Simulated scan of single mutants.
Amino acid sequence: MKSVQDFSPNAFRAAYEARGWTQADVAKAIGVTVGTVGRWVRGKGAPSPRLFSVLSKELGVPRSRMLVPLAPSADLAVLRTRAGLRQEDVAERLSVQASDISEMELGTGRVRDEWGATLSCLYDVSVDQLANAAEVTEERWRAELEAKRH
């Protein structure tokens, strides 16, 4: 399972310290080890989308507060993980198969027009940011395909 790629260790630390929590408090609240929380604080890892959602809820802060600003190079998978969602979660909301979401994120499938508004809401991004991420995803796929040809 992918980790949340744009996780900000400094913002995470600020969020739990603002509550007066320690790393041990965070670990107990979300069901991980203190060592895991310590790795996140040191930037040696990041929570999974599921744990990121739990973390946001337990700390009472929006996910966006624990993320670095969205990069123009963010692809569709980054948007999903920033939102704390698994492919299965997105598939369920769109009433499609998880494989449809996987293909969309690999660039072998596309963002269907009827998905745009829902994905924009789920990922908490504008429609333009969603479209940009879809372009980044497709460009990455094309570059990988071209590299295989050579």
Rank of each mutant, 00 (worst) to 15 (best):
G84R: 04
E92D: 03
R86Q: 12
D89E: 07
T108A: 06
G109S: 15
E114W: 09
R86P: 00
D89R: 09
T108L: 10
E105T: 08
A98W: 05
Q97N: 08
A91W: 06
D89G: 10
V96R: 12
G109I: 12
S102V: 00
S99I: 10
L94S: 05
E92W: 01
L106G: 11
E88V: 03
R86H: 06
S102E: 02
E103C: 11
I101Y: 03
A83N: 04
A91L: 10
R110I: 09
T108F: 06
M104T: 11
L94D: 08
R110K: 14
L94I: 06
S95T: 03
V90Y: 00
A98K: 13
R112E: 15
L85Q: 04
D100K: 04
D100L: 03
R112K: 15
G84M: 05
A98F: 02
M104F: 03
G107F: 07
D100T: 15
G84V: 13
I101N: 03
V96L: 08
V111R: 14
G107I: 07
M104S: 05
I101H: 04
E88M: 00
R93C: 02
M104G: 06
S95G: 03
A91P: 07
R110F: 07
A83I: 02
E92Y: 01
A91I: 05
L106Y: 11
D113F: 15
R86T: 13
A98Y: 03
E88I: 02
V111C: 12
L85K: 06
G84N: 07
L106Q: 14
L106R: 15
E88S: 05
S99K: 12
G107W: 08
E103M: 14
L94Q: 08
R93P: 00
R110P: 01
G109F: 09
R112D: 13
A83F: 02
E92N: 02
W115S: 12
L85F: 07
E103G: 06
A83R: 01
E114K: 14
V111D: 15
V96S: 05
M104H: 03
L85C: 10
S95W: 00
V111W: 12
R110D: 14
V90K: 00
E92T: 02
D100E: 09
I101T: 05
R112G: 13
S102F: 02
G84E: 04
G84F: 04
R112T: 05
M104R: 01
V111I: 15
G84I: 11
D89I: 07
W115A: 11
R93K: 12
L85R: 06
E105C: 09
